[in-house]
């Protein structure tokens, strides 16, 4: 299964995400994206059903797999402020569809990281292949991961 970048920005290795749960791949492997300042539209990384959406994060189920995109770190503390949802729980979405609007620059100015971990939930590390190298720039909607 192909997983697409939810936002444009610089690709970062998961182990370099400044959050131990993501960095240690406790919920799964993947890649993170340090979003461009104008990456205000977060796209569905896969086509599937929304298992759970929060203002700052979404899990989409597809082919019995779960893909998590988390917009920034500790952004749950913002209680949804600055985030606009364009999808709801249990809704079917297409990869590339806008599901959340937010302002990564405002998140940074609020003293939080705006990094977006994209996680292949509970996947084996060897089944998940990065298609963009850390340090490179990725555009929203561009292929990011291949999950066997």
């Amino acid at each position: 299964m192909r997983v697409f970048a939810p936002v444009s920005g610089k690709v970062v290795a998961m182990e370099d995400v400044p959050d131990p749960v993501f960095a240690q791949a406790i919920v799964g492997p993947g890649l993170a994206i340090e979003p461009d300042a104008d990456a205000t539209k977060a796209l569905a990384p896969v086509s599937g059903r929304i298992a759970k959406i929060h203002p700052h994060a979404v899990v989409i189920e597809a082919e019995a797999k779960g893909v998590l995109a988390h917009l920034g770190l500790n952004t749950v503390e913002l209680n949804g402020q600055g985030f606009t949802l364009h999808a709801a729980d249990n809704e079917d979405v297409q990869a590339g569809q806008i599901i959340i609007e937010w302002d990564p620059q405002a998140v940074r100015e609020g003293g939080r990281s705006a990094i977006v971990p994209v996680v292949a939930m509970q996947a084996k590390a060897e089944d998940v292949h990065g298609l963009v190298a850390p340090g490179e720039h990725v555009n929203a909607g561009q292929a990011l991961l291949e999950w066997d």
Binding site: V21, Q24, I26, V27, A51, K52, G66, L68, M121
Partner: peptide, 20 residues
């Protein structure tokens, strides 16, 4: 659980997608 992070009185219990 998948993991546990503790920092003083802040505890994070990593339980996977069924957290809610």
């Amino acid at each position: 659980i998948f993991g546990l992070m503790k920092s003083g009185t802040a505890v994070q219990v990593v339980v996977g997608p069924e957290a809610d």
